[in-house]
Design a protein around this nucleic acid. Structure first.
Length: 235
DNA sequence: ACCATTTGACCCGG
DNA sequence: CCGGGTCAAATGGT
C-alpha cells in the first residue's frame, strides 16, 4: 500500500544490532541448557532451578522484545503466482517467523503440541538435515506455530537436537494463555542415569508453564517422557 | 480412501 | 546466484 521502505532505512543499523543481539541471546539460551544438563541433579534443587527459570525468563523476554521491535513491516510488493497464504483471517502473516523459543534437547518431539512435518533440508555446514514442522491445526485453526528441528553435529551419546519454535500457538488454548500441560512420566530425574529402562507411565506430572517456563519444561522433562514415545512413533 | 510424510521443485531474501 | 524455507505431488501406512 503506502508503506515504503522508509522505516527500514532509518532503522537499518538497529536491525543489524538486533540480529547480533538475538543471536547472542539464543546462544545464551543454548549454553544455559547445556549448563543445566552439565549440573545434572544439582540443577533440580529449588534455588538453582529458580535461577535457571529466571535466566530463561530474562533471555526470553529480551528475545521477544528484540524480535517484536525488529518486526517492522517491510515493503511487500512481491506478488507471485502462489501467494495464497500471505495473511490469515486474523491478519497474522503465516510466512513471518518470529522466534518464540530455542532449546537444545535430546528428544525434540512431543512438547505438548501436535506437529506436522512439511519439509526437510540439508543445511550448509551441518551433517544432518533440518526438519520443518508446523502445528497440526495450522489449517483448521489458523495456528501459526512452527518449529524446526536439527540434529547437532556433536556426536554425543544421546544425540542432541536444536529446536527452534516460531510463533505462539493460538490453537487449543482454553482460558488461560499460560496453559498447564501434562506430561506423563515415571520419574523425571534429569541426570542421565538409568533412563533407558524407564517404562510404564504410571504417574502423571503436571505443572503450570509460562512461555519462558516452557523452555525449562521442554528441556528438563523431554528426556524421559519422549524416550518411549519417540520409540512408538518411530516404530 | 484417507492422512501424514517424503522429496524434489519452487520461492525469496541477501 | 546461493542458501534456507515452503509447496505440493508422490508415496507409504493404516
Amino acid at each position: 500500500m503506502d508503506n515504503k521502505k522508509d522505516a527500514s532505512r532509518s532503522t537499518n543499523h538497529f536491525e543489524c544490532d538486533h540480529r547480533m543481539a538475538i543471536e547472542g541471546i539464543k546462544r545464551g539460551q543454548e549454553l544455559t541448557n547445556q549448563l543445566k544438563d552439565a549440573l545434572g541433579f544439582s540443577a533440580t534443587s529449588e534455588p538453582v532451578s529458580k535461577l535457571f527459570h529466571g535466566i530463561h525468563s530474562g533471555l526470553n523476554n529480551a528475545l521477544s522484545g528484540l524480535q517484536y521491535a525488529s518486526n517492522a513491516p517491510s515493503s511487500k510488493s512481491r506478488e507471485s503466482k502462489k501467494n495464497s497464504l500471505e495473511e490469515d483471517s486474523l491478519g497474522v502473516n503465516l510466512r513471518r517467523r518470529n522466534i518464540v523459543a530455542s532449546i537444545a534437547s535430546p528428544t525434540p518431539h512431543y512438547d505438548g503440541h501436535q506437529w506436522r512435518k512439511y519439509g526437510e533440508k540439508l543445511i550448509n555446514n551441518s551433517k544432518h538435515e533440518r526438519c520443518y514442522y508446523r502445528c497440526t491445526y495450522s489449517k483448521e485453526l489458523k495456528c501459526p506455530a512452527t518449529k524446526t528441528v536439527q540434529r547437532e553435529d556433536s556426536n554425543t551419546d544421546p544425540p542432541m537436537y536444536s529446536v527452534i519454535y516460531y510463533n505462539h500457538h493460538i490453537c487449543n488454548h482454553k482460558s488461560s494463555e499460560y496453559e498447564p500441560f501434562v506430561i506423563d512420566s515415571t520419574n523425571f530425574s534429569t541426570n542421565e542415569t538409568s533412563s533407558s529402562t524407564a517404562s510404564q507411565e504410571t504417574a502423571s506430572f503436571e505443572a503450570y508453564a509460562s512461555p519462558s517456563m516452557e523452555l525449562h519444561m521442554l528441556d528438563e522433562f523431554g528426556m524421559e517422557t519422549d524416550q518411549h514415545r519417540y520409540k512408538s512413533l518411530q516404530d
